[in-house]
Nucleic acid binder design. Structure first.
Lengths: 109, 109
DNA sequence: TCTATATTCAACACATCAGTTGATCAAGGG
DNA sequence: CCCTTGATCAACTGATGTGTTGAATATAGA
């Protein structure tokens, strides 16, 4: 899975906001419009509309057309790109820890 | 794995910067000091020092003491908390997609 | 066509962030 | 006890982000 640096910037920045994370959670249960996404929050729909644009620019969601509505859809592959990036370094670190543990145990004996 | 909302804010925001991501990559290969982390970048050590503080506040790294040096260490569990959060919603979305595919296939027949 | 609904654009205020320079603190080595 | 090295603090600047209000656009429906 290849993502350019800018996409990582935008994706992580997109998730660094509780409102957008709540939208992600909501969208995991199915598509939703601006109005539906705005409902739980005490902010204007314009603000929600821009949150959606941020998520879309990050590639985390796509939008379709349904009459006047512009439903949002989560893109699981984009989420997977993030976990891949993180896991690469987490797994390397864990491997290193295990190697060090093994070395310490050898020293003891 | 339980993380408060603020930790998610700080963690994702911490990763939304290419300099800090490069530091994470470097630290996955072993501990490093401020000076070592600063080396690849054309910015001052003060700036690097603050990037490190951001990573530490996010819980992504810890620091130890070695004489004058304050080596940084990656915390794999903190990375794992992020992938868990993301995967919850990615997997839910993928399950939903599969259910919809199955339904469509049923309609056809 | 006229009106209501869904969404977006534009311009502004305010806060936060990443970087700088200069001063300061802490630990080791002569 | 100096002096050097590693690291941090403080104050400032410019850029970016999140929210607001008010106007504009687009589609649906009577």
């Amino acid at each position: 899975m290849m993502v350019d640096d800018g996409q990582l910037d935008r994706s992580f920045a997109a998730l660094a906001d509780p409102v957008r994370r709540a939208m992600i959670a909501r969208l995991s249960r199915g598509p939703a419009t601006v109005n539906e996404l705005a409902d739980p929050f005490p902010i204007t729909k314009q603000a929600v509309s821009r949150h959606i644009q941020v998520l879309e620019a990050a590639g985390l969601i796509t939008r379709t057309r349904d009459g006047q509505r512009r439903p949002c859809h989560l893109v699981p592959a984009a989420l997977e790109a993030l976990t891949s990036w993180i896991d690469e370094y987490r797994l390397e670190t864990e491997r290193r820890f295990r190697r060090m543990e093994a070395l310490l145990k050898e020293q003891e004996s």
